[in-house]
Design a protein around this nucleic acid. Sequence first.
DNA 1: GTATGCCTTCTAGTTAGATGGAATGTCAAG
DNA 2: CTTGACATTCCATCTAACTAGAAGGCATAC
Lengths: 138, 138
Amino acid sequence: MRIGELAARLGVNPKTIRYYEARGLLPDPERLPSGYRDYGPEDETRLAFIKTAQRLGLSLDEIGEILAFKERGERPCSYVLSVLDAQLSDIDRRIGELVRLRAELVALKDRADQLLTGAACYCGIVEHAGRISQMTTR
Amino acid sequence: MRIGELAARLGVNPKTIRYYEARGLLPDPERLPSGYRDYGPEDETRLAFIKTAQRLGLSLDEIGEILAFKERGERPCSYVLSVLDAQLSDIDRRIGELVRLRAELVALKDRADQLLTGAACYCGIVEHAGRISQMTTR
DNA sequence: GTATGCCTTCTAGTTAGATGGAATGTCAAG
DNA sequence: CTTGACATTCCATCTAACTAGAAGGCATAC
């Protein structure tokens, strides 16, 4: 598959894919006789992984380290292990924080549900609807 | 407490606090006779919330909406509720993804532990130690 | 009484991550 | 055989979120 199709499947800009390649996050792809990049399903998997990890707050550098490590068949050094450990405990902390934030939002919503008796109402926030919908659909 | 102390407690730059104030994330604080900003514990709580939410991937705009909503005593409109719902389901999705990523990292680490028999070893990644430690200590 | 901290406003630079545009080349359909 | 969608590279620009510096002035601490 060519870059446009891969980009469309994952909902990213083709430029972003070339950018990731330049940053070493994606391997140099096969090329068609025409010189076009030719991607397979494993590239799609890898790109999806990058996007997911990114949503979770990992930087491209961190994601690159994880990917490099996944590829490396050789013996890892203890330094690499410690990086991995650090990432793990970081993730644990984040899960905890997310759970707490979730609880807070739920409480907020419960309070809101009680206040809302059914009829539509007007409030200042709606005037920002444009900005908010941009915000929530990105 | 003045801006410097608040900044130090939370580990942020004083400039960042003024920046948040300018963005409307923090309320205009009380002022000392001297004109200095005077913060109380509730400001610290709020700033800590901002920083946590940010680590979890929310943008300053999103955080602002949540905070504005928390403050608003009046009846929320159903639009606001739907924004809150969207944020909640987003958070649920992220928790799930984090748990999966965690499992993946654990598997990776287990494989690594097996390979590592005890002695130190050299590997290419160590040559990037500078970059990595920058990365993991940020 | 002199550092050091904070105030204001303004301007400008930084980083990460991505995106846009120009100039040029390739491919598939009609 | 041309037209429009896509590809290439290179360079430049954009956004979010800071962060820094300067100018000029008052405040507080040792």
